[in-house]
Write a protein that binds this DNA or RNA. Structure first.
Lengths: 175, 175
DNA sequence: GCTAAGATACCGACCAGCCGGTTGGTTTGG
DNA sequence: CCAAACCAACCGGCTGGTCGGTATCTTAGC
């Protein structure tokens, strides 16, 4: 069938963004990263936009799956969402990088991200007696995410884990 | 002396990013926006990077000045920082756009932003009995900022102002 | 089980447009 | 007259996407 599949290409693209930066996310670079010619790459993704879209969708899917896992293990909505965001920050592949690339390229690509955030917001809004505070906890986690993307926040920083624990504690009090 | 000054060029650049997106922030576009030839523009900013740097510095200066104003009016460190972030979100010129452009172009340009965030963190860390919670409030505000940049958060949204008020309330309890 | 035919995966040379930056000149203010 | 401000044509490299072709697989019919 195919020696490389779309998922492998998306991983290669993430790798390129991580190594060279969003501006260097070029079709040639991605092709080279996954041992393909540009023609071969274009065969799978007809335009660069479609590749970016796939990157974002893959990242979102990963985050959703992660939250799902925590939920299945007994965490409530808020806690599982928080943990999912933290997990996303730990392995610095995927969404952060894809996000940067997408924003740089074309804001319209953010639509799926936007949908995801709104969905999450709705999920939480109905489930807690103090939905505003719940939202703020999520926002704080996303703020940490931003810090991570900008390179301000190190996940090895002791402050990082302290804030993480604190957020989880606060979420537990909310139930 | 000069018919256009650097500040005017920076404003023009912000305008371009807002209208056309970060990827379209081109020297020609900026030049056209402020009624200058590319040569004339290059005369003021020898490279595109230096223009981006100026954009970021201008934005940071605006935010600092804003916080300063609130502090002078009697707000404590945390409250004035929070209010400054909110003010930054209201008029959607400047930092958000510059930030996007910079990240797209070259992560190294984020250094001043990074410094600013770290400085703010230090400022707050020493001033409150529960510094972690104070940090979380700042992070929540920054999370809202991220939402704004991604187009998820509308400043007209009633939820927005509710969260805003709530954050300020929480900060008041911290003193 | 073999083969012809069609589809799918892939290659690599090529192109056209864009964009940052250069250069050599002209205008303008002092 | 000088320096700073500005212009406009130009260049060279990069990059997204095209194109015509080859290799590898799938499938139908015998």
């Amino acid at each position: 069938m195919s020696r490389v599949d779309k998922a492998a290409i998306v991983r290669a693209a993430e790798e390129v963004v991580r190594e060279k930066g969003a501006r260097k996310l070029t079709l040639d670079a991605v092709a080279a990263q996954c041992g393909l010619s540009k023609g071969g790459l274009i065969h799978h993704f007809r335009t660069k936009q479609s590749l970016l879209k796939a990157m974002l969708e893959a990242a979102i899917a990963r985050e959703d799956a992660s939250a799902e896992t925590f939920a299945a293990a007994g965490d409530d909505v808020l806690a599982s969402r928080l943990k999912a965001i933290f997990e996303l920050m730990e392995d610095d592949e995927g969404l952060p990088r894809a996000l940067i690339a997408a924003v740089a390229e074309d804001p319209a690509l953010l639509e799926p991200v936007k949908c995801n955030v709104i969905e999450m917001r709705g999920e939480i809004d109905g489930s807690y007696s103090d939905p505003e505070l719940a939202q703020l906890l999520i926002l704080a986690a996303q703020g940490m995410f931003l810090g991570r993307v900008l390179g301000v926040m190190e996940s090895e920083d002791p402050m990082f884990s302290r804030l993480r624990e604190r957020l989880l504690m606060l979420s537990a009090e909310l139930t």
